[in-house]
């Protein structure tokens, strides 16, 4: 379980994340939705210890991420698929993570098969990878340690339609087996088809959160029957007004 409590991050006079609280529970996919610049990525970076909070807390299973003894075994993280050393092969990228976590060596081949990178592709340097292949490699790195929690920032970026469907099935299956998924995206449709719970962020603040079904019902026909997209636009543009 992920618990974010009154999280705030200021950069000088600019408040990127403003008193954000939500939880992501086991067995559910929590969609983290918001327009560009809403503070999603900053929140996720603070959650995994890459940035620090000005105030507030973010914990995974009751502990701060940086206090986890071997975090890759408990939390799979993919924040930016293009943040990989381009001079390494895909297989070597996974091997580095596998050795850091002290996992058996065959875990690398298992992950390559799972994310659909062929032996030829995995022997190529990341420099020659498409964004979709980098996403697959990043998902492989996140799943390598067999974690119970996944934190993913825009993992569908660069995937082709087949890849997007594959990713959706993978996340659904992960949650159905009791895993916790926190999935950020600005693509409403992606979130709509896979998420159980929603956290909507606009200008650093939470403007809506709860089970997807409840939020959609509350919006109802009064919102023009536009579904999640209309709800999202109403919520986020309301915050901008």
């Amino acid at each position: 379980m992920i618990a974010v409590d009154a999280l705030t991050r200021r950069y000088g006079g600019f408040t990127a994340v403003d008193d954000v609280s939500f939880t992501a529970r086991p067995g559910r996919v929590t969609g983290f939705l918001g327009p560009n610049g809403a503070g999603k990525s900053t929140t996720l970076r603070i959650l995994v210890g890459l940035s620090t909070a000005t105030s507030g807390t973010a914990t995974v299973g009751g502990r701060r991420y940086v206090d986890l003894p071997d975090p890759g075994r408990e939390v799979g993280v993919l924040l930016d698929a293009s943040a990989q050393h381009v001079g390494r092969t895909g297989r070597e990228t996974l091997t580095i993570a596998q050795r850091t976590m002290g996992l058996p060596r065959d875990r690398v081949e298992e992950m390559l098969a799972l994310v659909g990178l062929t032996p030829q592709e995995s022997s190529r340097r990341v420099r020659d990878y498409s964004l979709g292949m980098r996403q697959r490699l990043g998902i492989g790195t996140a799943l390598l340690g067999d974690p119970a929690v996944l934190v993913l920032d825009e993992p569908a970026n660069g995937l082709d339609p087949g890849g997007i469907r594959w990713m959706r099935g993978l996340l659904r299956d992960f949650a159905d087996r009791g895993g916790t998924v926190l999935l950020s995206s600005h693509l409403i449709h992606e979130i709509e088809v896979v998420a159980d719970d929603l956290v909507v962020l606009a200008r650093g603040r939470v403007v809506a959160r709860g089970p997807k079904a409840d939020l959609l019902r509350a919006a109802g026909p009064a919102a023009g029957g536009g579904g999640l997209e209309q709800l999202f636009l109403d919520l986020t543009e309301g915050a901008l007004a």
């Binding site: 940086v66 975090p71 993280v77 924040l79 930016d80 943040a83 990989q84 993570a97 850091t100 790195t141």
Partner: peptide, 12 residues
């Protein structure tokens, strides 16, 4: 190369 994103996530 921004590989620190992974490195410092695995070893915070």
């Amino acid at each position: 190369q921004r590989s620190g994103l992974t490195t410092f996530t695995l070893v915070p």
